[in-house]
């Protein structure tokens, strides 16, 4: 128990300095192993396009509805959990293998890249990938030097039906600022000086 949690006699032992929070489930109807404080106090007004509101109790750590270690009755301290109403884009992608790739060249129909196994178990390989496999919004990012992630796995829908899938996503990082370029040049000069 953290010191902060002890001071508050927090039954969930979630101190102010803790940096653990559960990943929200994609299916809110399922009871989940949620962190106890993964609820949001409602202090209207909220600006929200399509809220779906479910009682916090349904998402607390213990699915037992009769659990008595809930910090405060909901009537005294109303809580809402704002949750995704629609299913996420893709139900459940399970990757079998992933690579990080570096684009070497591009032509009208495909690009050529060096790909590295993300597990580090195998070395670099060369790949030729059709542009049709790239999401339309990522096409502008396909140019020499671009970094992408490539996963092969399968999607499993809510009925448990699996289908093989390949997924490519290009890395997005902020534009380089002038001082970033200067810092990179300085670093390169230092490295060069070490080699010479």
């Amino acid at each position: 128990m953290t010191e902060a949690a002890e001071k508050r006699n927090d039954p969930y032992q979630v101190g102010d300095s803790d940096t653990y929070r559960n990943v929200p489930p994609s299916e809110p109807d399922k009871a989940d192993n949620m962190a106890a404080d993964d609820t949001i106090d409602t202090r209207p007004p909220f600006i929200t396009r399509s809220p779906s509101v479910i009682p916090a109790k349904r998402l607390q750590n213990y699915s037992d509805e009769s659990a008595t270690d809930y910090s405060m009755p909901e009537e005294e301290h109303p809580k809402l959990v704002i949750w995704t109403k629609k299913p996420v884009f893709r139900t459940n992608f399970r990757s079998l293998q992933g690579w990080e790739g570096l684009v070497k060249s591009v032509d009208e129909q495909r690009f050529f890249a060096t790909v590295y196994d993300l597990t580090g178990e195998t070395g670099a390989s060369e790949a030729e990938i059709p542009l049709d496999d790239v999401q339309s919004y990522d096409l502008e990012l396909v140019r020499p030097g671009a970094v992408f992630y490539w996963y092969i796995g399968y999607h499993e829908d809510v009925n448990g039906t699996r289908r093989r899938a390949s997924d490519i996503r290009f890395r997005r990082l902020p534009r380089w600022r002038a001082r970033d370029i200067v810092a990179a040049q300085d670093e390169a000069h230092k490295l060069r000086a070490l080699l010479e």
Binding site: V23, P24, S26, V88, R90, R94, G98, Y149, Y151
Partner: peptide, 11 residues
């Protein structure tokens, strides 16, 4: 920030 799909962890 969180992701619930293993092919999005790098992203």
């Amino acid at each position: 920030a969180s992701a619930a799909e293993s092919d999005r962890f790098e992203a």
